[in-house]
């Protein structure tokens, strides 16, 4: 029996975006099915908030200079690896509320793995090209349809059961001790950040040999960039 791997993501996280393909690779390499969960970050609570206009000028900000440095470095770092994979990663112009897209993920999970994968791939891809308003419920409905999910009843789910499930899940996630994305969980052991992918692999391989140090996964660097 293969191990159970939970992965927690947020569509507005550039780090979760650039970790996605290397994470999918685990399914192929270990013959497992990842159990995906949305972890909706409240980035403003720890890195302040800001808005930019189309020209890139900051129009609103509650960030300290140090928080700006941290945010700018995070994007610079994420872009390096996005470029390596041929991914488009345009900095966001505000801190998005990604909870609707997270509820969309919960809905997509109910409709099978093919639909779920399409939903995750396409939502990430379009969001980071600034081509997706993830705060618009109609946009999420369209995303589900494009991904091959039956979206009939989604809006009722979004306003009721889906919202309740999402909000309860966020509470449970904090109780479990997970606080950022991507987070990988195997046998109750959590690893936060894609720099833990070598350890995730080591864990999935049965923990043979010494515990590896953190390092960015180079598995995908050997293959051609994503189209």
């Amino acid at each position: 029996m293969s191990a159970r791997l939970e992965v927690y993501i947020d569509f507005k996280s550039p780090y979760a975006f650039i970790a996605k393909d290397a994470t999918y690779q685990l399914e192929q390499d270990f013959g497992l099915e990842i159990d995906w969960y949305p972890l909706t970050l409240n980035i403003g609570s720890y890195l302040g908030t800001a808005k930019k206009d189309d020209s890139g000028q900051v129009t609103e900000s509650s960030r300290s200079p140090r928080q700006w440095l941290a945010v700018k470095y995070a994007y610079k770092d994420a872009r390096r690896y996005a470029e390596l994979r041929g991914l488009t990663l345009k900095g966001t112009q505000k801190i998005w509320d990604s909870s609707l897209s997270a509820i969309g993920l919960l809905w997509a999970k109910r409709h099978g793995r093919v639909c779920l994968k399409h939903y995750i791939d396409d939502t990430y891809d379009r969001f980071w090209k600034r081509a997706l308003d993830i705060e618009d419920s109609q946009v999420i409905v369209a995303q589900l349809q494009v991904s091959g999910c039956d979206a009939e009843g989604f809006e009722e789910y979004l306003a009721g059961e889906g919202r309740d499930d999402h909000d309860r899940l966020q509470e449970e996630i904090l109780d479990r001790g997970y606080y950022g994305v991507p987070t990988y969980v195997i046998d109750g052991e959590s690893y936060f950040g894609r720099q833990h992918l070598p350890r995730v692999r080591w864990h999935l391989e049965g923990k043979t040999g010494p515990l590896p140090d953190v390092a960015y996964d180079s598995i995908l660097h050997q293959s051609s960039p994503a189209s």
Partner: peptide, 25 residues
């Protein structure tokens, strides 16, 4: 560098979330 930028005396609507996330971290 992470943390609240609230001015002294301002109510923090995220105080519970912030504390729970810090505990998880």
């Amino acid at each position: 560098v992470a943390g609240s930028n609230l001015k002294p005396g301002e109510d923090d609507p995220l105080v519970i979330y912030r504390a729970r996330r810090a505990d998880a971290r």
